[in-house]
């Protein structure tokens, strides 16, 4: 009942601070195998905090794992930033989680095939990009050859 009350209260615009889009963020280094595990734990904790259900938690942690491993293996290490989001009440007031994964590696020369990779070959590790895209609601990737790759993914909590 309390959770529900909170929802009602929020929708009535009662909260002391009205709908900040960004409710907090944290950045983690991704430059070792240990970091990959740390990042997974941090993302899991963030999904729980954002109120995601078990299946959505698994989707987001899996996407994070794919992207972080990319940055570590293909990008020679990088960082992952977790942001808690909240939509303004008039847009539904949903909570969300945004992950930004950056590396300064060689970049991805052929983005289009990188995005279809995991899907067609199945067995291959690919770049894990296509998979992460399918697990999240919003997806954008920016890559410059020789300078690095930045992937931003977001999932909203529909429940």
């Amino acid at each position: 009942m309390t959770l529900y009350d909170e929802q009602l209260t929020r929708s009535a615009g009662l909260g002391p601070q009205r709908s900040p889009v960004r409710a907090g963020s944290a950045t983690y280094s991704v430059s070792s195998e240990e970091d990959l595990l740390t990042v997974r734990h941090a993302v899991r904790a963030a999904t729980v905090e954002a109120g995601f259900g078990l299946v959505d938690q698994t989707r987001i942690v899996t996407a994070a794992s794919e992207l972080a491993r990319n940055a570590y293996i293909h990008g020679g290490g990088g960082s992952l930033t977790i942001e808690q989001l909240r939509q303004p009440p008039q847009q539904g007031g949903r909570r969300g989680l945004r992950l930004t994964v950056r590396d300064e590696g060689p970049g991805i020369p052929d983005l289009e095939s990188a995005l279809t990779d995991g899907f067609t070959t199945g067995a291959g590790l690919g770049h894990g990009l296509g998979g992460a895209q399918r697990l999240m609601h919003e997806f954008s990737v920016h890559s410059t050859t020789g300078e690095g790759t930045t992937v931003v993914v977001t999932r909203w909590n529909g429940r």
Partner: peptide, 16 residues
């Protein structure tokens, strides 16, 4: 006003 907004929430929850 509050009532209507609150009701909306209830409707959404019920539809779920």
């Amino acid at each position: 006003e509050t009532y209507v907004e609150g009701r909306e929430e209830i409707i959404q929850r019920q539809s779920r």
